[in-house]
Amino acid sequence: MNNANRETLLSIKDLEITFGSGKSKFVAVQDVNFDIFKGEIFSLVGESGSGKTTIGRAVLGINPTSKGEIIFEGKQINGKISSKEKFQIERKIQMIFQDPSASLNERATVDYIISEGLYNYKLFKTEDERLNKVREMLEAVGLLPEQLYRYPHEFSGGQRQRIGIARALIMNPDLVVADEPISALDMSIRAQVLNLLKKFQREQGVTFLFVAHDLSVVRYISDRIAVIRAGKILELAETEELFKNPIHPYTKSLLSAIPIPDPQIARSRKNIIYNPNMHDYSIEKPEFREIRTGHFVYCSDSEAIEYKKNIKD
């Protein structure tokens, strides 16, 4: 795919997010740059505490940003924007939450939960139209219309997560931030939810920012992957490119840690341990550089030359 011809939906430039101020100031995310193209599933992968969820939440405007720009459909959406504009953007960017039992209102029926956004934006003319929309959505996520008046705690974890997906997608969003949507789910129902997300991408052209820590899941679902560590994006490439030619040592160590369900291969495989002190950035400042077309790595000049030499085709 040629990225130059694709329409950019979301563009993040030099993003910095800090929590607290003064002595207790903590920089959670720094120098983050990436574009998300229309209709793709873009994944952010990293260990816990790396800032991947923070970026997702900043896109939604839940976390305030301290520096940089988040540009959505050509307009800046972070920092000071009018509440009217914010309200309009909120409809276009939706979120799927990590824990389906914590993110659903236990005292409301599924009917209300799914149509909450419809009420807020008055996306229906008559009561019948709203009910039809909710029913269609329920069927689209594989639930039964007769469950409309049940409460979230009556559902299984997978069903609850599908309610969460229905609630986000009924708004017809352009971008959906999926914050580890499957990590709270049982292994057996993960595929169900992943396939559902893929279905919406295919059929409705929804763009996803998929936040996860599980590389095998990410490989299955995403078009492009960004690897993030300690608030910095270290490598960004198309999925297969990243898995075939990992360039950054951190990515290499991550890929070497994916479990292989074959004891013989697993035993002979060498695990790579990443040491963040191996980079000497005291003289040359690191930057996010394009090593190959569409393959970006966070490195200094001399590292870039070395990386380019070692690329296999």
């Binding site: 939604l60 839940i62 309200f87 909120e90 409809r91 960017i93 939706q94 979120m95 939450f97 824990d99 914590a102 993110s103 659903l104 209102n105 236990e106 909450e116 956004g117 807020n120 934006y121 969460g164 609630r167 708004m171």
Partner: peptide, 11 residues
């Protein structure tokens, strides 16, 4: 979190 979710829905 469910209140955060409501806020992202523009409630």
């Amino acid at each position: 979190e469910y209140n955060v979710a409501s806020r992202t829905l523009g409630t």
